[in-house]
Design a protein around this nucleic acid. Structure first.
Lengths: 132, 132
DNA sequence: CTAAACCTTCACGTTGACGTGAAGGTCAAG
DNA sequence: CTTGACCTTCACGTCAACGTGAAGGTTTAG
């Protein structure tokens, strides 16, 4: 498949896919015309990339991790041994982020509880406008 | 207290505090010399700011939320009613982020489980080089 | 009274993951 | 054989939360 089709399948843009390649996350074949050619596997790979990016990993970290991911049969684990430390570090970073997110959500929850109570006398109407 | 002291107490930098003020998150008094003067309350406020920033809220969102937070007696809830939607939106954003983080952490966990098993036969040495 | 250690306001630099044209080659359809 | 929808490679723009001097005023300790 070509770059635009992959972008549609994976829910992203051609620009992002070129960027991933520039960062060493993807290695598409090239047609005689110079066009990039991706195999269907790439869809899952790109989804993994997006997931890890949304988890706060940068492209360098993903570049280390990605070859070890099951569905990716292309390169298959070249730097796996030393990688375990990096994996643990990222895992800890993710857990720390989740903790901070939880704490911040608690703050918002307290606001959501305290807010309406404070303005209980004033507001409390205008809600009957929406039947469903 | 002056800006550097507040920065130390809250674990940040003067530059960040000036930035928060520029974004409307802090309103310190001014001495005759032009120096900023903060009351002790500000320490908690700054900690709240950092917490919400680390949760992915931007300064604009925090500027809306901050006046409603308990310890902050300075302004006290000017736009609280319509704010509840914004709070819910941010809460949902945080929950979604936590879900993605959890999914990504699962991916890493699967790698941490599968990785050592796969390279078990090949690696396992080279670790005795570093004594300390 | 002077030097160190603060403080002030510009104002440009940084980082990461892309967005957004620009200028031009390629390919299927009419 | 020409349109139009693809594709290619530069290469600069963006956004957010600050970092980092620059140039100068203020306060405090000796």
């Amino acid at each position: 498949m070509r770059i635009s089709e992959l972008a549609r399948e994976a829910g992203t843009t051609p620009r992002a896919l070129r960027y991933y390649e520039e960062q060493g996350l993807l290695r598409p074949a090239r047609l005689a015309s110079g066009y990039r050619h991706y195999d269907p596997q790439a869809v899952g790979t790109v989804r993994h990339i997006q997931l890890l990016l949304s988890a706060g990993l940068n492209t360098a970290a993903i570049a280390e991790i990605l070859p070890c991911i099951p569905d990716d049969v292309t390169v298959l684990a070249p730097t796996c041994p030393e990688l375990l430390d990096a994996l643990a570090v990222e895992r800890a970073r993710i857990t720390a982020s989740m903790d901070r997110l939880g704490a911040a959500r608690d703050v918002l929850d307290r606001l959501i509880q305290a807010g309406p109570a404070a303005s209980e006398s004033v507001t409390l109407r205008r809600r009957e406008q929406r039947p469903s």
